[in-house]
């Protein structure tokens, strides 16, 4: 891989958090362990996995909101480091999960959206700033007259749109969407997802779309990556992942998708995983999934499976496939 042709190239990203256990004992919580993926210009990569598997940490670490323990992030062929991250802040943005805590309650909408403009000095006059804010509000489907209100005067969906407008203010080429719809109800989810898609078509932005709703991710993404306990276990084109999952964990995830049609749902075979997710502080030896896997063998206990290509653009980390 040259790193030249992709917009974003994440290689071997690791994020370990020190956790205190007991008086002096310090343990490492491996929130993200050796994650690599690429995203092309204007593409959406879906990132799914259950709660606590490190999806959000991946998104935040690659933006250097957390300092990565190891690994490299290339943006547009350039290595991003802690020192030069300031130059990339304009190109990489993030939309947060919780539309309530992600907007400062003491700022008007105009100030929230205008802050990135202020920081990067993207305007030459007050009028230009106001015009840009109005333009952004219209772009995300809000009334530009709302600029002088406070965030608490809006509903959840509207607040999420404000968050999107703030991310768009600097004309980014890549946005981390950190579960942007999971705090919203279904009808609003659809609106926000459509907004994301429209923006991608209009502006050609690439997304890392983090979610735990597989149907939403399938709808949004060209490719999907499945995470389990800080690692990517399967990555490939969205249709293939949903249609014919290979990794046993993906298999069970897919089988858990609620079916809108009760007739199909009745005949569906659900794979129910046994046991709990192992604590990330005490990872099982070998394959992290083997404690809950139906196909676990001796080999799984001994060595950790690496991602291997089983079809073009399709990688799975499993010994038995």
């Amino acid at each position: 891989m040259s790193g030249q042709k992709h917009l974003l190239d994440v290689r071997g990203l690791k994020e370990y958090f020190p956790v205190k256990s007991g008086m002096l004992n310090k343990m490492l919580l491996k929130a993200v362990d050796d994650v690599s993926f690429t995203i092309d210009e204007g593409e959406t990569l879906g990132l799914v996995g259950e709660s606590g598997c490190g999806k959000t940490t991946v998104g935040r670490t690659l933006l250097y909101l957390y300092k990565p323990t190891a690994g490299e992030v290339y943006f547009d062929g350039q290595l991003v480091t802690e020192k030069n991250i300031g130059d990339f802040r304009k190109d990489m943005q993030i939309v947060f999960q919780d539309p309530y805590s992600s907007l400062n309650p003491r700022m008007t909408v105009a100030d929230i959206i205008g802050e990135p403009l202020d920081i990067h000095k993207l305007y030459s006059s007050k009028k230009e700033r106001a015009d840009r804010i109005a333009e952004l509000l219209t772009l995300v489907g809000l009334n530009s007259e709302h600029a002088n209100r406070y965030a608490h005067e809006f509903s959840g969906g509207q607040r999420q749109r404000i968050g999107i407008a703030r991310a768009l203010a600097v004309n980014p080429r890549f946005i981390v969407c950190d579960e942007p719809v999971s705090a919203l109800d279904v009808s609003i989810q659809a609106q926000i997802i459509n907004t994301f898609e429209d923006l991608q078509q209009k502006l050609g932005i690439a997304y890392l779309f983090i979610a735990h709703d597989l149907l939403v991710v399938q709808h949004m993404s060209r490719r999907i990556a499945v995470m389990y306990l800080g690692r990517i276990v399967e990555i490939g084109p969205a249709g293939d992942i949903i249609g014919s999952p290979v990794h046993p964990y993906t298999e069970s995830l897919i089988s858990a998708i609620p079916m809108p049609d009760p007739e199909t749902a009745r005949h569906k075979h659900r794979i129910i995983l046994e046991g709990d997710v192992p604590s990330p502080l005490r990872m099982p030896k070998g394959c992290p999934f083997r404690t809950r896997c139906r196909y676990a063998t001796k080999e799984c206990e001994e060595s950790r499976p690496e991602l291997k290509e089983i079809a073009p653009d399709r990688f799975v980390a499993c010994h038995n496939r």
Binding site: L65, M92, S102
Partner: peptide
Amino acid sequence: NNEYVLAAQAMGAKPGRIIRRHILPN
């Protein structure tokens, strides 16, 4: 630990600005 502080960091805001604009008013 509020997400709007993270959002400000993601925008490239310096610590002084974060304290002044986001933390102290709240």
